[in-house]
Nucleic acid binder design. Structure first.
Lengths: 168, 168, 168, 168
DNA sequence: TTTT
DNA sequence: TTTT
């Protein structure tokens, strides 16, 4: 080992975790986490910039995330950067950077839309899990084609490692 | 501000810093930093994976980096993730993730090719600065078209913010 | 500057923040934050160890902490270690280590004892602030004598820098 | 597990690592690491403050540290805070905070007193290891009484866990 | 492209 | 897509 490659995130999930399973049963959870920072523009007006982060969790961490986290949950993630190279449908080489989470921690609690406590509040997440793209389309979102061209971050693995995509 | 978006890197520069200056004179230094981790593959053989990170430093930090760092230098960088959206020459939207460095620190010292101490050793870097692409082309490298299509990480800024590219 | 001295904490406050003000009006908030880790002892039983951290915040950060945090709040703190040397009443030199917080962030929300949302929930903390030792007395709490022998972490400053202790 | 308790240090060793071994042979290395920060005092003069950190490494990490690090080496350490309670010879309860290192990394290289490369330079450290207090006596060094009253950070363990002190 |  |  040589060097340090560490990422620390604390932010909100923009969508329920996307769960997938490798052929050997290993769980993979993909999170989309927002952090924001505020700054002053040249006119001195306060602006906010939101950054979206793609996080992948594996194994037990993935399972716990899938069980307890959902859209709006706050999460702490510690991990490392990984840039993957892949080829889009035009045959162009492209690169996608994600955070491989080595540890995550649910933080706080948030009233969900039905008025129940979630996350640390203790009740398990009985929702039907992530049912859609998980990606958005406005200016702050991750590449909208993630889910199509590469099914988010681990898509390149499908052919190579035989990931199967799970629908709920 | 809401959330935490923090990156900590400690690794080696794969090339001399690329220096650029904004019209107002603000210095921008782009670093390519390698970190590596070793792991065991399924056969139990030890493998090493190198990750390349694009780091941007600004202002005084950029100037100091340009003066003291060079290819082979080890550097500690603390910063945050930023993903930029840009359009490639085919008109496709693309995303590039870089680390905006809030703080960097030279570490250690390395004999350079002429046998003199560099970096922390104290002597300033009198080299002609980065004269080329700074990007490579093998499997571990950042997108090779960075330098052409988007002159590394801040290219999208050129039109928008009026960056001019500096040649030495 | 040379070197990196960084602490990252995410935990719960064991007591309301203790607020003090320097003669020039600068606010100082002292937090007692608990983190815990679980491990297996030699018999294979799962044990939990709680660590208590003394955190000092200054100026605007202190004011915001005093306003929004209270006992039971979860907080993220980023700071640095500082060890102070002081002399106890027996004339012995002693050392106390605290975290000087450079940034803090309230996280999550917790129903307080009255069933109202606190912290991020938005309502300001109108409580009478920290009225006692701030420490507890069982095995997991901060040393109870902190407040007597050294009035928590900055006590040594009182004579030296003229801090006055504020009661609410 | 609940919460995050993380320390990141990058600094210079003030002394050779102190090596000890538990009865079961587990290696323990104690490092004294200096970081410094500069600031301006009220008169606007630049001042530097050095902070000394007590770091404990265990097992393989300890062995590697004992082999490669020495006084003057630069090291990156990632770990967590731990405060121990102990009783001094006057029977007073006291607290000592140290960093339990979960990971360390040698960085850079430094010419040692004999003009050879050390640390990352590659040659193993064949020196007779830490033979003394490991602490100094001026204002910037670790408390000189650490080694006497509490044999540095793990002294409380000697009775409790049966550590034996190793002399070289 | 780096480095051990 | 999140949140304050």
């Amino acid at each position: 080992m040589s060097g340090v490659n560490k990422v620390i995130l604390l932010g909100y999930l923009g969508a329920d975790p996307e769960m997938r399973y490798m052929p050997d049963g290993t769980a993979v959870a993909n999170l989309s986490i927002a952090t924001s920072e505020s700054y002053k523009d040249k006119e001195g007006n306060r602006q906010e910039r939101t950054e979206w982060h793609r996080v992948s969790l594996y194994r037990r961490q993935a399972e716990v995330a899938g069980e307890y986290l959902k859209k709006g949950s706050m999460a702490y993630v510690e991990g490392r950067l990984r840039t993957r190279k892949w080829t889009d449908k035009e045959g162009q080489e492209r690169y996608t950077t994600e955070i491989v989470g080595d540890r995550f921690q649910m933080v706080g609690s948030r009233r969900d839309r039905d008025g129940q406590e979630s996350a640390n509040g203790g009740s398990k997440n009985g929702r039907p899990a992530s049912k859609g793209s998980g990606g958005g389309a406005n200016m702050d979102v991750p590449p909208e084609d993630f889910d199509d061209e590469i099914p988010f971050a681990i898509a390149a693995d499908i052919a190579r490692r035989g990931l199967r995509r799970v629908r709920f």
